[in-house]
Design a protein around this nucleic acid. Structure first.
Lengths: 233, 233
DNA sequence: CCTTGTGAAATTATTCACAGCC
DNA sequence: GGCTGTGAATAATTTCACAAGG
């Protein structure tokens, strides 16, 4: 690709950015001024070379001999992730999981704001959850339009996940996070990410049944969570 | 079946197995007798060569010219994943997310059974959720021992995720699924998987802000969810 | 001394392409 | 004819290792 196109960021790198942001936020709160790639790597449970390579995709932030300025690096990562401003999201499917997510502090810390909750069950319509009333799914398009929503969360039963995703796409949403254990297809212009906790448990169970197939770890005495090795279905 | 587990199974392959299981279960319910790698790939939103390569790690299940016997392949995958029998799990942290997961049908379909729910809040102790009473965390070790629990789910606030994980490890658990947005470290002998829905939203937001960095798709008009690029709940 | 940033090497994963079988 | 299984080719990612900066 010629230079007129922006450099592509490897997906594993993108997936680690929220982790870096979270860890850097803690360091910043603790008034830590600078951090080396080795220290940041340790705190994130990843490799130092990986940290440096990841950050190098976005420019030169560090100072040789010193490390990275925590506040500055945090600001850069927030800017890259767009979490320096609030983004409106909607949640479709207000069962237990929808309720749990709607009330989760993760939205705010990640830079998101719930502006719409949707379901079809009449007994749920009108209920207030986390300061937002549950509306009928038929009002989805209107809310997405008036609130400029571009991200939707699907927490419905699997049999309606495709239908709800289609509605989200029709309403102009270009990013969907699907928690339903169903294969959903969307146009190429829409980003889809899948989360399946049951599949995660099954992966754990597989490695318990086949310990010899577990990936070998290298450094240190303990393992930390290293993203890029999970994924949902 | 020759030396089946002689070689290491690539982690991306392991992560796709639950997906294959789910799709094959639907095919089996629909009384579909055989399926080709191309059909299975289509239904899973992945590439046909990948399906064949994945399955080849476990032995030769298919018939050239015909495809795979759905029931037989499903049985093999369930056996590999250990979902042909129920496995006991415990959930620590009975806030909204813990409640949602405890009541989720995903446990049963994935081959899991909730045998213990734990929290520290006095007002929650004793409450019945999905047929199981919430106990104080101090009873964790006893339940894990008597029920032979080897998998634990952490749905606590982030500040106690490490402490609860340590308790799980001390109780003999060798697989932990952590939903708390915190870096947790465990001994090498313990498998850890992380699920962070806020990070998933941030990844979606990143790709919306940088559409030029989104991975190019190849086949077809729409994209399906392809694991290997996300985390799960 | 420290550290970063980065080419080069190594490792891992995906996709191709085709021989062989039904 | 169609389809699997797999070695070979390609692509993607991680890790190494070191020159250069502080």
């Amino acid at each position: 690709m010629p230079e007129r196109y922006a450099r592509r960021i490897p997906e594993p790198t993108v997936i680690r950015l929220p982790l870096y942001q979270r860890v850097l936020s803690v360091l910043a709160q603790d008034r830590v001024a600078t951090v080396s790639s080795a220290e940041l790597a340790e705190a994130c449970g990843v490799n130092a070379a990986k940290v440096r390579k990841d950050l190098s995709h976005f420019g030169t932030y560090g100072t040789p001999g010193t490390g990275y300025d925590v506040e500055y690096l945090l600001g850069q990562i927030k800017r890259e992730l767009g979490s320096d401003r609030q983004r409106p999201v909607v949640i479709c499917g207000m069962g237990n999981l929808g309720h749990a997510l709607a009330g989760s502090p993760g939205f705010r810390t990640g830079g998101f704001e719930v502006v719409g909750l949707f379901d079809v069950a009449p007994r749920r319509i009108g209920e207030m959850v986390a300061g937002c009333p549950i509306s009928h799914i038929s009002e989805l398009a209107g809310v997405c339009a008036s609130e400029q929503v571009s991200i939707g969360v699907v927490t419905t039963p699997p049999n309606v996940a495709q239908d709800v995703s289609d509605r989200l796409v029709a309403a102009g949403v270009t990013g969907i996070l699907n928690f339903a254990p169903a294969v959903v297809s969307v146009p190429f212009s829409v980003q889809l990410r899948q989360v399946d906790f049951s599949a995660e448990l099954q992966v754990l169970a597989f490695y318990q049944a086949h310990p010899e197939t577990a990936v070998a770890r290298r450094n240190g005495e303990r393992q930390s969570s290293d993203p890029g090795s999970r994924h949902g279905v």
